[in-house]
Design a protein around this nucleic acid. Sequence first.
DNA 1: ATTTTTGTTATACTTAATATATAACAAAAA
DNA 2: TTTTTGTTATATATTAAGTATAACAAAAAT
Lengths: 131, 131
Amino acid sequence: MLIQIEPQSDVPIYEQVTRQIIEGIAKGEMKPGDMLPSVRNLAADLGVNMHTVNKSYHELEAKGILTIRAKSGAIIRSAEERTLTPEQLKQIEKNLKPVVAEGMVLGATANQIEHMMKKVFADLQVLTEGM
Amino acid sequence: MLIQIEPQSDVPIYEQVTRQIIEGIAKGEMKPGDMLPSVRNLAADLGVNMHTVNKSYHELEAKGILTIRAKSGAIIRSAEERTLTPEQLKQIEKNLKPVVAEGMVLGATANQIEHMMKKVFADLQVLTEGM
DNA sequence: ATTTTTGTTATACTTAATATATAACAAAAA
DNA sequence: TTTTTGTTATATATTAAGTATAACAAAAAT
């Protein structure tokens, strides 16, 4: 799985790492049970500090996506281990809201945003039959 | 229009102001042509510094949502004045992607995310007939 | 059993972002 | 003419982000 960092971005490095790992899992490039590279190895690959990657892994653990086994490594949790809580659903909705609102105010129609959603799903290789 | 600041939030105050103004416009609580309160007045209302509100207004101007007339005030641009550029569409898609990906990885189905989208639209009073 | 690798913890430092405080300026509006 | 407005400038404090380095103890590999 390829992770690319944009040093100039307004998105913090640890957040870029977090997002790209999530995308990698969504795309099936990484599967539940898979081990992530060690924080030292990934940091060396990306040319960033160990603690930056470590922060990302812990963010992913807080989101319930990883399990970090102390002094051993980080494993991607399976969908069975993950319980989509009502709180998480609310959080997703909370994240969705400002993006959609900005799109609407900028002049995008509901259908255009709908279309963008499907493009994102397609990029993540998610089946959208019958939607 | 009511704006409420959460001082404890991880979202910066100026960003909270920006988002809530965008939501207000999306909901129709503020219409194109309307003048926003002066940076000093809004800052006093919210109990924050003048420059914090000023930063938010300039962020909104950079997004193409406001026009700031020097030493006069800020006006909400009309949809006609706003041209939804391909760059803006790409930006919206770019904003949408991590939110959707996280939802998927957490175990939400495409239909669940679809449903959340409609809830957000409903909250913003957007017509979604025939979608 | 020993060596290597691992996440963890701690300390120190730098830079940038966020937010406030205060003041002055010049143009617009009242 | 006075008040209000965004603008600009300076200064300060706090927090976030990122790096650097080191040491520790447990896990894994040899």
